[in-house]
């Protein structure tokens, strides 16, 4: 499923860019992230707990940052799997200055599998968007 949109960060692009490469900031901002541990250059192992209404599930997965072109764009891939299925998402984030702030345009794919794919279909887009929004809200607050 394609997913795209834009969010704002109240920092100039170079600062926003740096923030989004900082594992500690990411760990704080990714909704449900319980741990983020570096496994290689720009690669991390993540444990997260996703909760959406009655749904809840623990996921273990990887975060990878690539195609870095500071401070204007990079690619982010996140994948996780747990007992209720798996989630994979990836896309390019483009940063544009807007006065003293940054507009982050994202464009990517989300793929889910397992039980969540079967029952959560109508919720995935909304859930993904709301997670992205929370992610940026938390980043903005850091």
């Amino acid at each position: 499923m394609k997913i795209s949109g834009s969010q704002r960060l109240p920092f100039p692009p170079d600062q926003s860019y740096a923030l989004m490469q900082d594992p500690e900031a990411l760990a704080r901002a990714i909704p449900g992230c319980e741990s983020l541990e570096q496994t290689g250059e720009n690669e991390y192992r993540m444990k997260m707990k996703m909760a959406l209404a009655a749904f809840s599930g623990a996921f273990e997965g990887k975060v990878r940052i690539s195609e870095q072109q500071p401070p204007s764009s990079f690619r982010l891939d996140v994948e996780g799997s747990g007992k209720i299925g798996f989630v994979k998402g990836g896309g390019v984030l483009k940063l544009e200055p807007s006065e003293t702030e940054t507009v982050v345009n994202y464009d990517g794919d989300v793929q889910v599998g397992g039980t969540i794919a079967a029952v959560g279909q109508r919720l995935i887009e909304g859930a993904a968007k709301s997670m992205i929004q929370r992610f940026f809200e938390k980043l903005a607050a850091s």
């Binding site: 499923m1 793929q111 599998g113 079967a118 029952v119 279909q121």
Partner: peptide, 14 residues
């Protein structure tokens, strides 16, 4: 099925 072969009408809800 979606492009990755996931059955997205996987329950009587859909």
């Amino acid at each position: 099925y979606d492009e990755a072969g996931q059955l997205i009408t996987g329950e009587l809800m859909d």
